[in-house]
Design a binder for these strands. Structure first.
Lengths: 109, 109
DNA sequence: TGGCTATCTGGCTAAATTGCCAAATACTTG
DNA sequence: CAAGTATTTGGCAATTTAGCCAGATAGCCA
């Protein structure tokens, strides 16, 4: 396969992979509303702080979020809000599947 | 955390996870142009047929593609083309990161 | 300075993912 | 029916990921 294309696909996959976790999706949704520090996110998520911190690192490494230290806390912000467009599409897939499932439940003619 | 929300996030993550692999992104890109049978995709990808088949199963399980057996072959099609919107956004993230990298290379003032 | 809070990092285990081979299955054609 | 092609499935080894704990680091305040 074309090496250039392969590299491009891998770069994309890396970003998508960073979104491929329910906790990280939650983080993105919340940061879309407003910035938050790690402790706030940790409370919402209900996992160990270290776990949340690592999720944030994943998102940061691919450039989805950025962070800023203020005093004692680190505030995270959504860096590329267009990432929210993801969700509309994902919903479409879910809806299409749901509709199909519904059809299967209809009585045969 | 709200259980309903958790379930919704997990459903989304499942779909996004299915996209989170360069080979599967290639498949989606190709299917966006036209349907293909497994053997055609296998040739483009250059991996074992069984590997490609499993990637297709992943995409099918979450409803991104659907398949139709015609004679000896199974043709796969993109079921929800809006999935392509993903890419625009992913590109934005990549571009933003690239720009930032470029800035780092500028001489200091 | 000492103690407290917030965050990150290292290390570990359990679980999931990937990719290959081999074997099973389904169809087509001679 | 036999042989050949296309696809899927089972199984295995290697790699990656997730989440927790413990410990390190950084900044705040008394």
């Amino acid at each position: 396969m074309d090496e250039r294309r392969q590299a491009r696909l891998e770069a994309r996959a890396k970003i998508i992979k960073a979104m491929a976790h329910s906790t990280r999706l939650l983080i993105v949704e919340e940061l879309a509303k407003s910035e938050h520090c790690v402790c706030e996110l940790t409370e919402m998520i209900g996992a160990d702080v270290s776990t949340v911190s690592k999720h944030l690192t994943v998102l940061k490494n691919v450039g989805i979020v950025c962070s800023e230290k203020r005093g004692n806390q680190v505030y995270y912000q959504l860096r590329t809000p267009c990432i929210l467009n993801f969700f509309g599409c994902v919903e479409s897939v879910l809806e299409a599947t749901a509709k199909e499932q519904a059809l299967l439940c209809l009585p045969e003619r």
